[in-house]
């Protein structure tokens, strides 16, 4: 899933303080799971904003809505009838949702309420960690299912650097060395001989290096 973090309330207030009618819009997908932008967080942020404006002696309308997804036309359409009741929307979706909403409601300021940080997994409640950078050419079959692009600090492809110590990365004692994880898993799978294969130099053209990306599937396109 896409993992996001709540933005500091001060930053949100700074961007939103000039408006009189604000809609706080959550998203029921990834940001709900990582507890940054679901219905609960919409409620918390809306209350904080109401309190701020009340303390300022200002009458500001702050309403709440949570859409199933903000990265699909059909769910974004659900606010078409109400959007003109507001001067701005604070979207608690990831950067995709914020932008898609801004594209759809071109004349309405859409402000981000979260910082989108990575694609990752829930290790335990309250702990999310990165697993994928969307490089466009998956090599997990060769690396024991552990990605050196997203999990090695140096994005190394052919084993650890000299900074790997006791299974940890040199940049933090708390960070496992991706190549230690890869070697351990290959050993477990009885495929350690694959570790000896030299990986070709990475083609980054499928990453952002080739410019913004697009996937077109003619077979399912309508």
């Amino acid at each position: 899933m896409i993992v996001a973090e709540r933005k500091p309330i001060e930053e949100i207030i700074e961007e939103a303080k000039g408006f009189d009618r604000i809609l706080v819009a959550g998203c029921n997908e990834c940001v709900t799971v990582c507890e940054a932008g679901g219905k609960k967080e919409v409620g918390v942020l809306a209350s904080a904003l109401r309190m701020y404006f009340m303390n300022q002696g200002r009458e500001v309308k702050v309403d709440e809505v949570t859409l199933e997804r903000q990265c699909d036309h059909e769910y974004l359409e659900e606010i078409r009838n109400i959007i003109d009741n507001y001067d701005a929307v604070i979207s608690l979706a990831c950067g995709v949702g914020v932008q898609f909403m801004a594209e759809k409601y071109f004349h309405k300021p859409i402000l981000p309420g979260v910082n989108t940080v990575f694609m990752g997994a829930t290790e335990e409640r309250g702990v999310w960690s990165e697993r994928c950078q969307g490089c466009g050419k998956c090599i997990l079959a060769k690396t024991g299912g552990i990605c050196p692009v997203s999990r090695c600090a140096k994005r190394l492809f052919n084993g650890p650097c000299g900074g790997s110590s006791q299974g940890k990365c040199e940049i933090s004692d708390e960070l496992p060395c991706a190549w230690q994880l890869i070697v351990d898993r290959l050993k477990e799978l009885g495929r350690l001989d694959e570790y000896e294969e030299i990986m070709p130099i990475k083609d980054w053209s499928t990453d952002r290096a080739g410019g913004p990306r697009k996937v077109v599937r003619e077979d399912v396109r309508q």
Partner: peptide, 13 residues
């Protein structure tokens, strides 16, 4: 120029 236009289009900008 964009890397894609050059002779090492697989490079990371």
């Amino acid at each position: 120029e964009e890397i894609a236009f050059g002779d090492h289009p697989r490079a990371r900008a």
